[in-house]
Write a protein that binds this DNA or RNA. Sequence first.
DNA 1: CTGAAAGCGCTTACAG
DNA 2: CTGAAAGCGCTTACAG
Lengths: 340, 340
Amino acid sequence: MKKVTIKDIAEGAGVSISTVSYVLSGKRSVSDEVKRRIHEQIELLHYKPNAVARSFASRKTNIIGLYCSKYPDTENTDVFFLKMVNGMMAAAEKRNYKVLLLNEMEGSENFVIPFDKTFPIDGAIVTTTINSHHYLNQLESEEMPFVLVGKPPKDLKINCVDNDNVKAAYEAVELLLKQGATNIGMVTGSGLHTRLSDFEIGYMMAHNSYQIAYRSENIIRHDINDPDYVQKIMSAIQENGLDGILVSLLFTRLINRLLTDPHAPHSIPIVSFGFDLIAEHYSHLTKDVHFIQSNAYKLGIEAVARLIDLIDKPESKAKQMLLSPELSVWRQSKELQQIE
Amino acid sequence: MKKVTIKDIAEGAGVSISTVSYVLSGKRSVSDEVKRRIHEQIELLHYKPNAVARSFASRKTNIIGLYCSKYPDTENTDVFFLKMVNGMMAAAEKRNYKVLLLNEMEGSENFVIPFDKTFPIDGAIVTTTINSHHYLNQLESEEMPFVLVGKPPKDLKINCVDNDNVKAAYEAVELLLKQGATNIGMVTGSGLHTRLSDFEIGYMMAHNSYQIAYRSENIIRHDINDPDYVQKIMSAIQENGLDGILVSLLFTRLINRLLTDPHAPHSIPIVSFGFDLIAEHYSHLTKDVHFIQSNAYKLGIEAVARLIDLIDKPESKAKQMLLSPELSVWRQSKELQQIE
DNA sequence: CTGAAAGCGCTTACAG
DNA sequence: CTGAAAGCGCTTACAG
């Protein structure tokens, strides 16, 4: 069974190949009669355009690549990633694009993936990874349009989409103050670098704006892989006399302890980053939790929207988009009230 | 800046286009001297083969499509899906394939997606969806190799990969018996259809093998969207005097209640399906939980491996692969012991 | 409103 | 071990 091509349709309808092509693309007006005959043949022969041939001729695949790091991640960032991909697919579909998952090539020590026509893509989305700086430098030299999801290195003017984490931490502190906190702690990962995170900047700016005493020991840095971090952080909370806490979702076990342990101090208000990612599992909260939305889905949408704009007109210059934080509260469920 | 093609390399190295192509593909032996000159030119001109042109000429894209349903899913199946995709990417990478995410086309009421060269794919993975039966029938008539992840309709002999859910439930019942249970309940979703699930069959087979009394009311069917299901199921557990429970992970709130509420009856052993998908969030268990692994990653691996085999030699006949259940236990964490 | 033809950048029989 | 050439199935200037 030979495959049906545009030529078969042209012959069947008694017109030229180009006319069939133009009917299919709608790029030129064609008489209704010819259109009818062509569609009749398409129906009759079950013609389906060949995507690869089309891409080859038009130099356009309508596919965007999503570069996925192989670096081990926590469950939480996995959920973030999944929701981001969902957003990307939604945005891509609207504009007739598909998403191709690309992972690191075998044998490369660094996170290096070909960023050219080695893959059938019109553009790419890159997420921040450990050695992204080195990597992004390389990307800049290529002609492929791309958008970074995450914070770009300062010296690179590239297209990117990210949460406004400075503002997020700032507003989180504001919220804790409104709830009566006076001595606010922040629990954050001990990254590879000792550089200040945007969260810390926002935290500090809020302390400055509201003229609250700032104590460096209130910024509690911990490796999330330390098996005993919960105990250590709980101790620090007590020793420092904290009455409000800002905590990253990465500290799953700490969150569990603070939010579900009936013996935990009920009085300390907590703001978590990205609690929406795992809220489903917390029908057993012992208190309400305020959180700053992860925006995973939205980031996916925006990244793809920006990328497709770039593909459509590549001359447009680099733009940095920051999503404003949205604060929400996840209420202690009915479930639990029945228990008590 | 014009893009570099195979022609430029051929001219630079003073050989024919075909020789360059053969050096690149390794499909024919070429003298070392010619090879050297060609690689020199490739290096010099930064030549990258054009994936689309290559696919067009060879009629092979090395891309497999993953058909994603848009139907709303619970968080848990999302995690399942994510891990499955991870498995697929791992298996695909090993054999030099990529994964293209495909979603339902706009405007189609049913779950109907083109299954032909409309997309640049060599084959496809399909997961079971609500109206998959109708859909699979359609797929069979196409020439595209595909593998279903899930249980196939009885009358279709197609390639598929799935968990052996009959065996899983059977072994779960066995495990509960070993733990001293004598009156075992099963909590399961109230699907659209009233047909028996594989889980129920396995449950019944175990009751038959071990000659335990079977009480139909011990199979507790509930809509997971019922906001009050926890209370209702807890009541049923008490009324029926159950001393062992088999529960689907879909009942997140019930799991929370049974596993994290210190007031919940500690004595009843529980076996959960797929607890591994969310175990990360349960550092606050009040008891150990036995579970049957979801096999999400493994299913992804197997589905892709099978699909690529099919692509390589399409004449091989349909094969149904069932993964045997693996029982595991998730121990109550140290965390919690410190609390008590 | 329509057609003839070049060309997209490779692969691969065919011939030597 | 190597080359000349057909061809993969479309798109799109160009010409009318």
